[in-house]
Design a protein around this nucleic acid. Sequence first.
DNA 1: AAGTGGTCTAGACCACCTT
DNA 2: AGGTGGTCTAGACCACTTA
Lengths: 233, 233
Amino acid sequence: MTKGMDADESAIGGTNYGRVRDAIRDRIVGGIYLPGTRLKVHDLCDQFGISSNPIREALQQLQGEGLVVILPNKGATVRLIDEHMIRHIYEIGEGLDGILANRCAAIATPPQVERLRDIQHHMEAAAAAGDSEGRANYNGEFHTHLGAISGNTEAVDIRRRHQNLIRTIRQRYGYSPYRIEQIHVEHWAIIDAIAARDVAAAELAARIHCVRSCEDMLSRYKGFGAEVSEHEK
Amino acid sequence: MTKGMDADESAIGGTNYGRVRDAIRDRIVGGIYLPGTRLKVHDLCDQFGISSNPIREALQQLQGEGLVVILPNKGATVRLIDEHMIRHIYEIGEGLDGILANRCAAIATPPQVERLRDIQHHMEAAAAAGDSEGRANYNGEFHTHLGAISGNTEAVDIRRRHQNLIRTIRQRYGYSPYRIEQIHVEHWAIIDAIAARDVAAAELAARIHCVRSCEDMLSRYKGFGAEVSEHEK
DNA sequence: AAGTGGTCTAGACCACCTT
DNA sequence: AGGTGGTCTAGACCACTTA
């Protein structure tokens, strides 16, 4: 009874705080834990069948990832996202994606560009088939591959974290109807500029893509009214 | 004897893990704990006179800040910084500072610009007086104020974390002799562009500033040879 | 002043490495 | 197989908020 390792799925290697962190992250990104949700250590202990220490460490790591906010003697809550933060995140995206696209245009090999085209075709096929989850995955892969080409793992990390935050509210507010098609056009502008090795055009195209995404997101967000009322002080 | 709160300086409010986190961060940024240093929980327990749990949480938070790397069942080490990471960090700086300067040029009020000039004058005075710590502080304040004007707190956060990383190696390798003066010129270019409300010029000036800083840093770093030999796998 | 829930301690457990 | 050191448990402690 000593150590709680008798559970069935603990599988190969790793730590409990790692598993808990991944599980909670999935629940936040997946919309099960909505922004503002209190994450009480005791409840989580019961759910995972372990003691408080690994739970707390998982929450600390999630705070480091920006998904959770911990206040001393107050506990953890799923991070709230307001209009200011949305603007900030997309502004950062504008700067980072611009630089990344710039670098990609300078160093991308033909097979790498071909891979981008491939992903983009898959994305459009998924969109045409009404497979919104598949479309979202290919969209993520598109930006991931762009980051991989650039080689800047630190920047990719920042973008992935922000993507997690954005996803928590995108899935709540959705896209404008015409936005999906607009995304495809913008992606092709990025691909074409990279293929042409035009660093300035690639940077500009990536920035436009970000600005448009931000506008669409905010229009959806504000369209729903200020339904989020009571926040942390 | 139960709780270790009988120490003298625990003072007002806060948690032990918070104090430990701050203390370790200071030691890393201050160069007492060099990159690669093992941070053993047991040692830290002895030093701070507390048990392992708050120590571990402090380390998790520092990992979130990017100052520490924790590997499962391996423990924590002060993060190593290699040439790749230096390039990545400055590349991110190029994107972010560019955007921030752009926004500043669009929205900065005359008093805010005046404040920038003021800080810059103080920095140059400190440099002329040979006060390198004062100069570094004013340099930090310059960029902090730039971030404050932009209003993008998320971006400022990223920059501050990276600044912490850079400082850990800057203090080891120093500046090239001419670099300090060059910094002043580049700062004035940024200030003037913002004062003129020229967003494109401000963005360009900020990016040039980053590129030059990166070049100087790398030339110093490489000039010292590959003295860092054994790393984490 | 009782409850809720975050924080901390002491020590057991166990993964990994060295002998 | 023994040591080192990371991980986890059980429960005590205490800050903050209800009444």
